[in-house]
Each structure stands twice: as C-alpha cells, then as structure tokens.
Amino acid sequence: MTQTKTGGTLYRGREGMWSWVVHRISGVGIFFFLLVHVLDTSLVRVSPEAYDAVIGAYKNPIMIVGEIGLVGGIVFHAFNGLRIILVDFWKQGTRYHRQLLWGVVGLWVITMAAFTVRHLMLFFQGA
C-alpha cells in the first residue's frame, strides 16, 4: 500500500464541490445586485432626471467591467443550475455530473466571449 500525502484537512470534493462553491458565491452576488437594481429602477417614480443620473453610473468604464462580472455570475449560475436539475432528474445525471460541469464551463466561456465583445463594442461606440 502506497502512502498518500494529504494536504491538510481541506475537503477535496473536486468538481462537485467547486461547482457548489461557485454556485453559492455567484448566487449571493446576484441577490445583492438584485436589491440594488430594484432600488435604482424605482427612481423612475422619483423623476426622469434622478433615474438618468443614477443609471448613468452603469455607463462608467469601471461599471462596464463590473457588468461583465455580473453577467458572468448570472450565466454560470444559470448553466450550473441546469446541470443541477439534470443531476436531480436525469437517470444518468449523477454518473455524468463531471462531464456536465465541463459542458457548463465550455458554454460559459463561449457565451461570455460573445457577451464581452458585444458589450465592449457597444460601450466604445457610444462613449
């Protein structure tokens, strides 16, 4: 029997654990953005000037980068959510959960590449 070197007591659940961690973190981030987003949209009931001033902050270059991060979180949460549904309801879901995660990561990279290019192009066109 060969001795295995362990790296401390960290639970190493591999793909299943890391997708769970990222799903939680992205979910919490989206939730707090949602609270802010309902509040900023509510400014349409205050005045057009108030709404336009606050929504103008979303057109700042730093916020453009933030929006790519936000959409990245939403897209991961969405695709990984589909993976969770497949693991729960599809007979072969638990057997292929790792392959499904790599599918999620692949689709996420493609979606985010397209979104990032389009979002940045629109930003520089209008700036």
Partner: peptide, 14 residues
C-alpha cells in the same frame, strides 16, 4: 437591454 440597439447607452427614462 444590453445586446440589442445601442446596448447600455440606450438605457434611460425614455
């Protein structure tokens, strides 16, 4: 809201 039209720049009260 973000991909069609002028994207982020189109978003205002109107």
């Amino acid at each position: 809201n973000l991909m069609m039209g002028d994207g982020i720049h189109q978003i205002d009260f109107g």
